[in-house]
Design a protein around this nucleic acid. Structure first.
Lengths: 249, 249
DNA sequence: CGCGGTGTTGAAAATTGTCAATAATTGTGG
DNA sequence: CCACAATTATTGACAATTTTCAACACCGCG
């Protein structure tokens, strides 16, 4: 299933894969399941796959067979227009689900590229469907995950549609920080997994604009930038930048 | 449930509402259902509601209870940021489903405003869930609808992230035409249901830019513009504009 | 140690936004 | 049905932001 050679399956049983034991459970799985239900839901994970940095978990156009839950690592998803345009549609980290775009046409509609060595749980969509029919909480959970993605994209549209460069980047950083913090990382330090160009693609900006805006933030004492290492010195300032009135359409 | 007074329920039985008889069936409903299944799926529509032009079918923050299928009329959905920013996230027409954003948090995450007098089918989400558990085709259909919305938003991100004004507007027009044509309308003429400002909000442009770009297209003989009445003179030219290489990030 | 990919910065150009004036259209109430 | 008010649309001149092009610096890795 994976597009590139570096991805290789791991026998699920062998490594005792079990959502019920997974420390990402609260992020991936529905809460409030009974022990029996929990055990059954464990069964949706058919395998675990390693994906090397730079390789693709799936590509646009490939047959869609499964959703993927990220266990470790960091991904970007991007769509390519016919004319070669390329747009990063999101960055995904541990506990997040990718592949939802493939359901509608039974083919993936974007590429998922690992930005660092990663490991994902393969959840065959057929199996999810069967189990969701029996476990109501799982059914609702699947709906919630898809709805969440829709709402997330609304937020991106707000960003792309009406914000200026500094507002976009501030919103992006706050979002990243929030998600990282929810996973136990520092509230003030982070290492970017993506290039300036990828950030720019996601935010609808050129890489130079991203770089300049980082420099501006650094000059204002809001953040500290050393290549991909960032330190947030003044989170409140970032919030003020996002909420500033100018630059909306 | 509706936010504004002008929306009033219609007794579903009285007007013999039935998906099985609806001429939008192919757009709304799964295909290949058995007669019995079809009859049961009819049951997801609890009522029909009329929504007057300018009033809201639902608002951000309201409790989410149902999805809505548009029978007639035209809607926009928009999100409002805390600071008063407003972003149109989509335009919806007959046969399309709105409200998906509400599932994740049990509250609507955007406003749905009727841009012309409309009539919608109310489909309580509880009931959809129950029935989806029994009718596999319905379950898959719900997944497909949500996935389709995710993919649609990817397209919008491509548009907002990397296209110039004329490319955005050309893509917008082509998309509208295609959807209208699928509903039996002319392939070359249309009446816009929304203002320049609403188009601009959707496309991440100011209304003046939208107006100017319309004028430019008209000057180039690509379209004819008389206020909201449009005639597409040269669809191929619009395609060429969308596919032109420049202006991507 | 050097090379390729990545990041920074400057100056000029292009695109889009802002402000403002006017026109056209639609809705409303007499 | 008409007239007036309010909304919507068009257009111009100018300003602001972002992009483009280019040069150079910095890692990281073989």
């Amino acid at each position: 299933m994976p597009s590139d050679c570096p991805a290789r399956p791991i026998d699920a049983q062998a490594i005792k894969v079990a959502c019920s034991n997974c420390n990402l459970r609260e992020l991936c799985m529905p809460v409030g399941l009974s022990p029996e239900e929990l055990e059954r839901v464990d069964g949706v994970v058919a395998a675990r796959i390693k994906v090397k940095r730079g390789s693709r978990l799936f590509r646009s156009g490939e047959p869609f067979k499964a959703l993927f839950a990220i266990r470790t690592g960091f991904f970007k998803t991007c769509v390519a227009a016919a004319d070669g345009r390329d747009q990063v549609t999101g960055f995904q980290m541990a506990g997040e689900i990718i592949g939802l775009d493939g359901i509608v046409s039974d083919r993936h509609a974007c590429d998922a590229v690992a930005l660092e060595d990663a490991e994902v749980c393969v959840m065959p969509f057929e199996r999810i469907g069967e189990l969701a029919r029996e476990v109501g909480a799982l059914q609702h959970h699947v709906h919630r995950i898809m709805s969440r993605e829709i709402v997330r994209e609304h937020g991106v549209m707000l960003l792309l549609g009406g914000m200026r460069a500094d507002e976009r980047l501030a919103a992006f950083l706050l979002n990243l920080m929030q998600r990282l913090h929810a996973r136990g990382f520092s509230r003030s330090e982070l290492v970017l997994r993506m290039t300036r160009e990828e950030i720019g693609s996601y935010l609808g900006l050129k890489l130079e604009t991203v770089s300049r805006t980082f420099s501006k933030f650094a000059g204002d004492g809001v953040i500290e930038v050393r290549q991909r290492h960032l330190r947030i010195l003044d989170p409140a300032a970032l919030h003020r930048i996002v909420d500033q009135q100018p630059g909306h359409r």
